[in-house]
Nucleic acid binder design. Sequence first.
DNA 1: AGAGGTACCTGGCAGC
DNA 2: TGCTGCCAGGTACCTC
Length: 272
Amino acid sequence: MPELPEVETTRRGIAPHIQNHKVTGLRVRQRRLRWPVPVARLQTKLVGFTLERVERRAKYLLLRNENGTAILHLGMSGSLCVVPADQAPGKHDHVDILLDSGQALRLTDPRRFGALLWTAGPPEEHELLRSLGPEPLGEDFDGDYLWRRSRNRKVAVKSYIMDAKTVAGVGNIYANEALFMAGIHPARAAGRISRERYRKLADAIRQVLESSIAQGGTTLRDFVNSEGKPGYFAVQLQVYDRDGEPCPVCGTTLKGMRQGQRATVYCPHCQR
DNA sequence: AGAGGTACCTGGCAGC
DNA sequence: TGCTGCCAGGTACCTC
């Protein structure tokens, strides 16, 4: 589920329940996630210490304390919620981080593509984060940047903007949506797009992510309930998963294709 | 170096 | 109802 807006919504939802709370215990029911969960290190470095901040870099959540940082990724199917510590776990509730409030931060992840790691140093120097491109909602991301970096590149623009080294955290849904909004054909070579069109694209990426985060904000309360189900997304999508439906702008039938195993949908009339 | 494909894992759904 | 095959929002790693 989680694309960047969902991860940011999760961060905002859990932060008040975690920040300035002491971790009183850790339960790892399944340590085989994308990489093995470093249980012993987490026991030593996390338990008994107060979590100071919950930050986000790309789709990574960073839980920081005085010893270092827990790096958490939700993969394709992960979610986090805050539940009473004694609530019975479900089949895919792999990790509980117990808090002094009597609650637990619970990681659920059916497909186990997610990750929970530990780093002692500055998280931005961790190998998973080191070569990430700029944050799409940050200062140093704009159309000029996208244009400059794309010269002579033959990759399809959709793959280009989904590459975390180009810009961090633009996933399949929002890549489709942003390209539609900018009127750019997803298969166009990245190096053959003008600076002006890249400015439109960068604006579209920003806009689509921001409006989605804004809508996610309305469901924040859902991160803390007995069901433990985050209440994402009533977000309205213009093209994603609408293959065969009329284009919301011109009425032309939206076309589906596959790019690098990922579903792409676009309007053959509006996107060139 | 860049481009493209593969792998990890489970659940849900369409089609038979 | 139950089986099979395909698809899914991510991304590291492999090969060409």
